[in-house]
Structures are given as C-alpha cells and as structure tokens.
C-alpha cells in the first residue's frame, strides 16, 4: 500500500501531519505498538528536517505485510557532510528554528536509532533523499 504526502519547507504548522496519518494506518493494521512508535519517531524527524531545511519535499510510504519503507525526497540545499550531519548535537538549523526547540542535532541520529535500514543520499544545491525501512517482525 502506497501513501504520498507533500511537504512545504518552512510550514511548521503542518509538521507531523504525515507521521500522524501513518500512525493511524499502522494502528488500524494492528502493527505492534513498539514498531509504530519507532516509525513515528523516525518519520516525524525526517518530516521536520524537510520543513526546517528544504524548499519542498515528498514522502512516499510503502506498507507491506513485512514492514514499512519510507522514502523522503526533498529539493533543498543538500547536506555537504553527511558524517557531520549524523553526529549528535550537530545542526545547521536557523536561530528561529532552534528557538522552537528543533535543530538540536538529534533528528538524524533519532532516525538511525529507530530504523532497521537507513540510507541517506544528498547532493549539495539539489536536495536530499532519505530511505528508512522498519520491519514489522
């Protein structure tokens, strides 16, 4: 089952919408609560990253019997140094975004901690593509 969500950069009023929808779908499918929790954390962080850093993006969620695959693709500045970006506490978020309590440099590590498989590909000046897979069993 495929679900698609469009994300606008800078629009924090809708941040978390996709995560909330996916949470409802997984609950209805009786996916175990522990797995739902991991999906929600990973997806919310990835969703907020697009809002905080990119111009716009698309989330595609592919749910099968065995798990969920989330692909988040954005048009944005890209990440020059993925190793740095994966470091806990490192962030390039703006002051405004930080004052809201985002941009603490915990987003990507949170995603990695909760994913079974996680891949990040980025091109500076073009955008970033994240693939997050979480198994149901």
């Amino acid at each position: 089952m495929l679900s698609e969500f469009k994300i606008e950069g800078g629009d924090f009023t809708r941040a978390g919408y996709a995560s909330s929808q996916i949470k409802k779908i997984l609950k209805n499918l009786n996916v175990s609560p522990d797995v739902v929790k991991r999906v929600v954390v990973a997806l919310y962080e990835a969703e907020v990253n697009i809002v905080a850093h990119a111009f716009k993006g698309v989330i595609v969620a592919d749910i099968s019997n065995s798990g969920i695959k989330l692909v988040l693709e954005d048009e944005g500045p890209g990440i020059p140094d993925i190793g740095m970006a994966m470091t806990k506490g490192y962030s390039t978020a703006s002051q405004t975004v930080r004052e809201m309590g985002f941009g603490a440099g915990m987003g990507l590590p949170n995603i990695k901690d909760n994913a079974d498989r996680f891949e990040i590909v980025s091109e500076v000046g073009k955008g970033t593509r994240l693939s997050i897979e979480i198994d149901f069993l």
Partner: peptide, 28 residues
Amino acid sequence: DLLSDVMGGAKEGEIWITLQTHKNIVAV
C-alpha cells in the same frame, strides 16, 4: 524544551513539562 529529545526520550503516558508554546508540541 527540545522537541527531538522528547521524540526520542519521552514514553507513552508521561506528562511533559516545557516552556514551548507553539502548535508543534501538540503534534509531538
């Protein structure tokens, strides 16, 4: 007051103490 910290660390059924007042705290 860090939303990612709450996402990563808070557990179901806990009560959250914060000074953040914007809408995203409800989503979290």
